[in-house]
Design a protein around this nucleic acid. Structure first.
Lengths: 224, 224
DNA sequence: CGATGGTGTTAAGAAAGCATCAAGATCATC
DNA sequence: GATGATCTTGATGCTTTCTTAACACCATCG
């Protein structure tokens, strides 16, 4: 049974989540502020954490950092509409995904399932597959329709970061940091140029991407 | 019973690993810095080494080189998020795999199993064949069209590394490291000279290589 | 309806990387 | 110590990749 910890200071939301998730056979525990949330996290070792960014006692990113110091438990962030910069900061701090309030229970459940699935033990052979192409991290090789796809070093690095974080939203800052290094965090147009290149080489219809998805204002997501 | 040595200066992580691994029937010993880690490595001859890159007394790659000088024990590296260059350096130095902190115990266990499994049977396929020539790793011989091909020692070493990693992209750093040793990692020029030599001796059309392929900016790949 | 901000696309010059040839230095061998 | 093979180093022309800029597009918003 999957255990979920919800940290949120709004009692109605807390109640609604508890009822809905319990009905779906999740085991739910709750906390109403950051401090007791961190304590519950350490005590109960849940399989997923759902975290509201607007807590009374501490900043959401602080909670995320507090958790990420010792655990890789998936974190799904809840944020009010318009808190764009907060969401980016949360993802940069190590959150896995976000849902904007008000949210539909279906969407939350979908993201929850994805997060749990992702947390499953990493595959031994680092090969990520889609219906269209496969990425072999070890051999540094991309195959599409039986033949190799030629990637430039930068294209490869970009794809590698996305593939290692498959299904997960990776912020532009993260990508720029990992591929170009520190000091390039504002060169977002590099991403556009190289994402275009990857899509041209990998997507069946580059103008309607199915695997290399844009999350406007946030970053990109690779969906195998 | 598989024996694991953990070198990490963070006591909580050390404790957590010891508890978790012992519960999974591993025999665990620990060290808190590089120097005593190397000593423990020599003394206890574990089956796997788990090494944190952020040690107080020495650089992680130094520890890896210290081990690789006399042992091929699998090494799994722990590194904080974002230390991409460190990870690359560690892999170049001879690490087998890496896990990014914070990590899930499941992931670490999977990588541990994979590392042990890889290390146990080392059934090297001693002959690699292409349509044009064959490479006998055991006999150190290359045959083309029925007769032996004469290779210089350096040419052979280069071909050997490529053949052992057939189909895999081998980085220039790795090739320089394995053939010329540490300290030559910037002499990419050597590679070009010797790759030219190999192609002249092995490729049907050296100016349009079919087996010894260049991946610009990254390295070379031997495709049997 | 035009302005704005984020995104996708394309192209061209600049920069980096590669292949090749050849000559000097070094090494092993006799 | 002379010889031949091998390794190192430099120079040249060529190819690939990176960077940058310009422009089209779309949604949002005043």
């Amino acid at each position: 049974m999957t255990r979920v910890l919800v940290i949120d200071d709004e009692i109605p939301i807390l109640r609604a989540l508890k009822i809905n998730l319990t009905a779906r056979k999740y085991e739910v525990s709750t906390a109403a502020d950051g401090a007791s949330g961190l304590a519950a996290m350490a005590r109960e070792r849940p399989d997923v954490l759902i975290l509201d960014l607007g807590l009374p006692d501490m900043d959401g990113t602080e909670v995320i950092k507090g958790v990420r110091g010792w655990s890789s438990t998936p974190i799904i962030v809840l944020s009010a509409w318009g808190q764009e910069s907060q969401k980016v900061a949360a993802l940069d701090a190590g959150a896995d995904d976000y849902v904007t309030k008000p949210f539909g229970m279906d969407e939350l459940l979908a993201r929850l399932r994805a997060a749990v699935r992702r947390a499953a033990p990493a595959p031994d052979e680092p090969v990520v597959t889609t219906a269209e192409f496969t990425v072999d991290l070890a051999a540094k090789r991309v195959t599409r329709a039986g033949s190799d796809v030629r990637l430039t070093p930068t294209e490869w690095q970009l794809l590698e970061v996305l593939a290692r974080n498959a299904d997960r939203l990776v912020t532009q800052r993260q990508l720029l940091q990992e591929v170009w290094g520190p000091g390039y965090q504002n060169e977002a147009h590099y991403l556009r140029v190289y994402m275009a290149g990857l899509r041209r080489k990998l997507e069946p219809d580059p103008s309607a991407p199915r695997y290399l998805l844009t999350e406007p204002g946030m970053g990109y997501r690779f969906r195998p």
